[in-house]
C-alpha cells in the first residue's frame, strides 16, 4: 500500500473547484432555512391548533427521517407526478442542484425552528413580566425582549446545526451533483486511491468546520458583551 503525495497535490485543486457548490448549498439552505424556521417557530408557539399542528408534524416528519431519503424523494420521486412536471417549479426540480437546495433547506428549517424554540423557552419569565408591567404589547415583547435573548441563547446550538448542514451538503453528491464530495468520488473511482483523496477532502471539511465554529464563537462573544464583567 503506497501513499501517493503527488496524487494529493494534483487532486486538491480539482476538489477545491467544487467548494463553490458546497458553499452555495450551505449558504442558500442556511439563509432560506432560517427564514422558514422563524415562520415555523411562530406557528409552533402560536397556541392556535390549526397553526401549531402543521408546524409540529412538519418538524416531526423532517427530523424523523434521514435526509438522504428526503433528497431522493424530491429528486427521483417528484417527477413521478405529471402535475409537478407541468408546474412552474419544474425547471428547479429538474436539476439536482435545485433539489439539493430544497431538501437541505426544508430539513434545516425543521432543526433550526426547534433550536429557536429552545431559545425562546430559555428566556427568563421575569423579563417578559417586566415588559408587560411597562405596558409593552405581546408583539413588542416578542420583538424587543424575547427575540434578542432567544437569538443569543440559540447561537451555540445554531452553530452546531450549521456544521451539520455543511456535512449534509456532501449528500448532494448522491444525486450526481459535483460538489467537493462528488468530485472526490469521481477521482476515487478513476484512480482507486480512497486514502489519499478522502483524507485530503476530510482535511478541507475540517478547516471549514473550524472556520464556522470560530465565527460563531466570536459572534456569541460579541452578543454576550453585556453579561461579562
Amino acid at each position: 500500500m503506497s501513499f501517493e503525495f503527488s496524487l494529493i497535490i494534483d487532486s486538491i485543486p480539482k476538489m477545491l473547484a467544487g467548494i463553490g457548490i458546497t458553499l452555495e448549498l450551505l449558504l442558500l439552505s442556511m439563509v432560506i432555512g432560517t427564514i422558514l424556521a422563524i415562520f415555523i417557530l411562530l406557528m409552533r408557539i402560536s397556541n392556535r391548533w390549526y397553526l401549531c399542528w402543521p408546524a409540529m408534524s412538519f418538524i416531526y416528519i423532517f427530523r424523523g427521517t434521514p435526509i438522504l431519503i428526503q433528497i431522493f424523494i424530491i429528486y427521483y420521486g417528484f417527477p413521478q407526478f405529471e402535475f409537478i412536471r407541468e408546474s412552474i417549479f419544474w425547471p428547479m426540480l429538474r436539476e439536482p442542484y435545485g433539489c439539493a437546495v430544497l431538501a437541505l433547506t426544508i430539513n434545516n428549517a425543521a432543526y433550526v425552528s426547534e433550536i429557536f424554540r429552545g431559545g425562546v423557552n430559555g428566556v427568563d419569565r421575569g423579563y417578559l413580566e417586566a415588559g408587560a408591567a411597562l405596558g409593552l404589547s405581546i408583539r413588542q415583547r416578542f420583538i424587543y425582549i424575547t427575540a434578542p435573548i432567544a437569538i443569543r441563547l440559540s447561537i451555540p446550538a445554531y452553530s452546531n446545526d450549521v456544521i451539520g448542514l455543511m456535512k449534509a451538503t456532501a449528500l448532494a453528491s448522491t444525486i450526481t451533483l459535483l460538489d467537493m464530495m462528488g468530485i472526490a468520488r469521481t477521482i476515487v473511482a478513476e484512480y482507486y486511491a480512497p486514502y489519499e483523496i478522502f483524507i485530503s477532502l476530510a482535511i478541507i471539511y475540517l478547516i471549514m468546520t473550524w472556520i464556522i465554529q470560530n465565527a460563531f464563537g466570536l459572534l456569541e462573544k460579541r452578543m454576550s458583551r453585556h453579561i461579562r464583567q
Partner: peptide, 26 residues
C-alpha cells in the same frame, strides 16, 4: 471528537469501506 464531528458522515463511511478494502486486498 474534532475529526468525526467535522467531516461528513458519507466521507467517513466511504473512507472506511474503500480504505479497508484496499488495505485488506494488499
Amino acid at each position: 471528537t474534532v475529526i468525526f464531528r467535522g467531516t461528513p458522515e458519507l466521507l467517513v463511511l466511504l473512507l472506511i469501506y474503500y480504505g479497508s478494502a484496499i488495505f485488506l486486498t494488499n
